[in-house]
Amino acid sequence: MRDMLKRIILVVFILLVLMAVSGYFYMQKHPMEGKTSAGKSLNFSGNKVSE
């Protein structure tokens, strides 16, 4: 039981590290520059932000 728990925690940790590294390289290739991919800044409710 404890070995299975260690394995699950290790897999989750590895997935988090892979997501962080891939996100870092993605942001290096596609800097945000204050825009989303649609070219409009959206707040959390999904409304357009007036700039």
Rank of each mutant, 00 (worst) to 15 (best):
R2F: 13
D3K: 10
D3H: 04
M4E: 15
M4C: 13
M4Y: 13
K6W: 07
K6T: 06
R7Y: 11
I8P: 04
I9H: 00
I9N: 00
I9D: 03
V12W: 03
V12M: 08
V12T: 07
V12L: 11
V12A: 11
L15I: 10
L18Q: 07
A20T: 09
A20R: 03
V21F: 05
S22W: 00
S22E: 10
G23D: 04
Y24P: 02
Y26M: 10
Y26R: 07
Y26H: 10
M27K: 14
M27S: 13
M27G: 05
Q28N: 11
Q28D: 11
Q28V: 12
K29G: 07
H30K: 06
P31G: 09
M32I: 12
M32C: 12
E33F: 12
E33R: 10
G34N: 04
K35T: 06
T36V: 01
G39S: 01
G39M: 03
K40Q: 04
S41P: 02
S41C: 14
L42W: 03
F44V: 15
F44Q: 11
F44K: 15
S45H: 04
S45P: 05
N47E: 15
N47A: 14
N47R: 14
V49C: 00
V49D: 11
S50H: 12
S50F: 12
E51T: 04
E51I: 09
E51A: 08
